[in-house]
Simulated assay, not measured.
Amino acid sequence: MKVAVLGAGAGGTASVAELVQAGHDVCFWARSAETLEPHLRLGGVAFEGKLGEGIARPALITTDLAAAIADVEVAVVALPTFSHGAIAKGLADAGWSSDKPVVLNPGHTGGALEFAESFSRSGRQAPPVVEFSTLTYVARKYRPDGVTVSGRAKQLKAAALRGGADVLDIAGKLFPGLTPVADVIASDLSNVNMVLHPPGAILAAAWVEATGGDFTFYVDAMTPGVARIMRQLDDERLAVARAFGHELPNLIEEMKLLGTVEADVVDTSDFCAAISGGEANRRIKGPDSLEYRYYKEDFGHGLLPFLEFAAIAGVDTPVAKSLYSLAQIAVGTEYRKGGRTAEAMGIAGLSKEQVIRKVRAL
């Protein structure tokens, strides 16, 4: 399959490595020439870890979006969630067909809705959008021309906004191991990072600023107090999902499916032990500052859209509200400015029933 991979961070480079190895014809794009320059020098992406070891050589490496998407069958967007609106507009301006699917790897919370809303503002119908609940990989770029993949999701929730089973089948051929769910609300609310990151990010903020992240986020910072808050936040997530008609696994059960909690964990109510014992995440360092993506993404594009869904569903979420408010104060930002609001997702003023109809429309 001819695929454009958009994004040169850990997710984008890991996607290039997997898709090239699987025999797909890959065009690799990033906005930044500085980011792509090491890959151009190497002629591809160096990779190590769960995907093996080697150099994946895409057919094209470019900063020209129109060239990257020319004649491809599907685009994989592997960018930070706060880039979804901008890349949707960029694809619309570059002439992306409304018939060709876009895969958000990941979509996180509300990604497909925001992408479709932003694309449609071009005056054309948005393409089918497949949304993954979280990134396919646990990966980090420790070198400018390569990626280290310490984990690869075993089962990943995915849903389509338009296109139904056909576009989910295309996404599954690119990224095996997808578990289709009824709609993008279900995939939105299966975003583990929305629950996994905010409690530790807020409660370890002083540690982040004092040490520059010199601690392990999922072990050192996974204390009983953090875990208790995380569990209550997860209960709120499950309540909002239930209000939209979805019964979802709790956080630990979801992470077992992904492979970031060990398969032999029996007590899925013990968040502290289960998360700190996960091999894929255990060596990952804490954020190096309050500008890190746990603060930039997981509040304005994680908890904020979650709070918007909760308000539409009429479910009270005091823990999510408290963490969100504290983050705004600690980071010194107003997440609604440029964040994933109901307006950005195209669901402002809709009832719960209208939202459900919108996400299930063919």
Results as ranks from 00 to 15, higher is better:
D169N: 12
V167W: 09
D166P: 00
T136D: 02
A126K: 10
A116H: 14
T148M: 08
G163M: 09
V147G: 07
A160V: 11
K141F: 03
A165Y: 01
G151S: 10
I170K: 12
I170P: 06
E131C: 00
S120A: 14
F132Y: 15
E114A: 12
G172K: 02
S122T: 06
R121E: 14
S150H: 08
A171G: 03
G163S: 11
R124S: 10
R152H: 09
L168N: 14
G151K: 12
V147T: 06
K154W: 10
V147F: 03
L161D: 06
R152Y: 03
G111Q: 09
D145P: 00
A165E: 15
G111K: 08
R143K: 13
P128K: 01
E131M: 02
P127A: 03
K157I: 07
G163C: 11
V149Y: 01
L135G: 14
T134R: 04
K141V: 12
L113K: 13
A158L: 08
S150I: 11
Q125S: 10
A139C: 08
S118I: 02
A126W: 11
G146I: 03
V129R: 12
E131L: 00
E131G: 01
G172S: 10
G110N: 11
F119N: 13
L161T: 06
A165D: 15
F132E: 08
V167G: 10
F119R: 15
K157T: 15
G151L: 07
Y142I: 07
F115N: 07
K173T: 10
G163V: 09
V147E: 05
L135K: 02
K154Y: 10
L168G: 09
E131R: 01
A165T: 14
G110I: 04
G146L: 04
G163N: 10
S118E: 11
V149L: 03
V138S: 10
K141R: 15
R124F: 02
E131F: 01
K154P: 00
G172F: 02
R152N: 06
R162V: 03
A159T: 13
A116R: 15
E114Q: 15
Y137H: 14
A171L: 03
A158H: 07
A158Y: 04
A159H: 10
P128V: 00
R124I: 00
V147L: 05
K157M: 15
F119L: 06
S122N: 04
V149N: 01
P127F: 02
A139W: 03
L135W: 13
G164L: 09
Y142V: 07
R121L: 06
F132N: 04
K154E: 14
F132D: 05
L156K: 06
T134H: 04
K173M: 08
S118G: 02
A112E: 15
P128R: 00
F115T: 07
F119D: 11
A153S: 13
V149E: 02
L156V: 09
R152I: 12
D169S: 14
L168F: 05
G123T: 12
R143V: 14
V167R: 06
G123N: 11
G146C: 07
A116C: 15
D169I: 01
L161W: 06
Q155P: 00
A126L: 04
A112T: 13
T136I: 03
P128I: 01
R140S: 05
Q125Y: 03
G172W: 01
Y142F: 07
T136F: 00
G163E: 11
S122R: 06
A139P: 03
A116G: 14
A159Y: 10
Q155A: 14
T136E: 02
F115Q: 08
